[in-house]
Design a protein around this nucleic acid. Structure first.
Lengths: 166, 166
DNA sequence: TTTAATTTTCAATAATTTCTGAAAATAAAT
DNA sequence: ATTTATTTTCAGAAATTATTGAAAATTAAA
């Protein structure tokens, strides 16, 4: 397969995946573009490569910087901002997992704490309490597994898996 | 907190969470409603409780059945369909994880296989190959961890975590 | 059959999200 | 200070996604 074709396909795939993960399509495509780029890119590069407006490119680049997935560089003798992706995919995975954990699991845990205090002992309330308790258990353990993954690089579990994988 | 209040709050929270996970809001709310309901509910119950149209209730109930999160029952002497949620939260977690794995990680792996075959040795192509290889590594290992989670109930890791948790 | 109850579909509409592009703000050079 | 280069913002437009509701299809009783 030719590089140009492979590149377009990769950007497309990563964009679709991002959309499924709740990151918007363009942001994921910008990320893909930067990931495979050997050098830093400007806003104009992104606009041209992806065919999006300046506003759109700017917003999504900033979004990626907020997520910690992209860095903003300066280059001597040039007033433009240059953008460069974090290339360590384990760091990328960790950043994404951390952000999602913060946004999702943590808020659920907070809500559960409040919901545990429901009053009464009708069948409805008993069922409710049971479900809340079960969700609490599952999320606690999910959080622990996530915690392991997010410190994956030097975690015994990951080392084991890597070793097994050979 | 009063039951009615807690119930509304729970449905609301679960709906928001679902939206973040790419499941649509109403589907997640229907799921929440069924989760905390001690008895099976009809389409009309769902319409009334959530204030949604028949079409919407029907589509989302069917969606939940497709995900394996809800079962469709018959009740003797009644022509209506009754819906009942899977109550084992570990099964719920497994079903969701399986579905997401199938939809997301598996397709990425397929794409990577194709993209590995890119030709050339320019800096761009070298960088591209490296990124593809890294993504391949990360997803392989993510798939393995997911695999562990999805057989969580009787997995050594989960048992260990549960034990640690007390 | 025919009738009645229920579920499913889907075109039209509503709601939400994303994108554009030009104006405003910022920052650097002259 | 003024000009020039660049980034940011944001109201409106476009695109996407979700919802309605009524008609069509299905299913079971009469």
């Amino acid at each position: 397969m030719e590089y140009q074709q492979a590149k377009e396909r990769f950007i497309q795939t990563w964009g679709t995946l991002g959309a499924q993960w709740g990151i918007n399509r363009t942001m994921a495509q910008v990320h893909a573009l930067l990931l495979i780029s050997p050098k830093s890119l400007t806003t104009d590069d992104v606009m041209e490569e992806l065919g999006v407006s300046r506003g759109n490119a700017n917003m999504n680049l900033r979004g990626l910087v907020d997520w910690g997935l992209v860095y903003r560089d300066m280059q001597k003798g040039d007033r433009k901002d240059y953008f460069r992706a974090e290339k360590d995919l384990w760091v990328v995975a960790k950043r994404i997992a951390d952000e999602r954990k913060k946004r999702e699991l943590d808020t659920v845990k907070d809500q559960l704490t409040i919901l545990k205090q429901v009053e009464g002992n009708s069948p409805e309330v008993e069922e409710f309490k049971k479900v809340i308790k079960d969700i609490d258990n599952v999320t606690s353990q999910a959080l622990q597994v996530l915690g392991m993954m997010t410190s994956a690089a030097d975690n015994f579990l990951m080392k084991t898996i890597r070793k097994l994988k050979g």
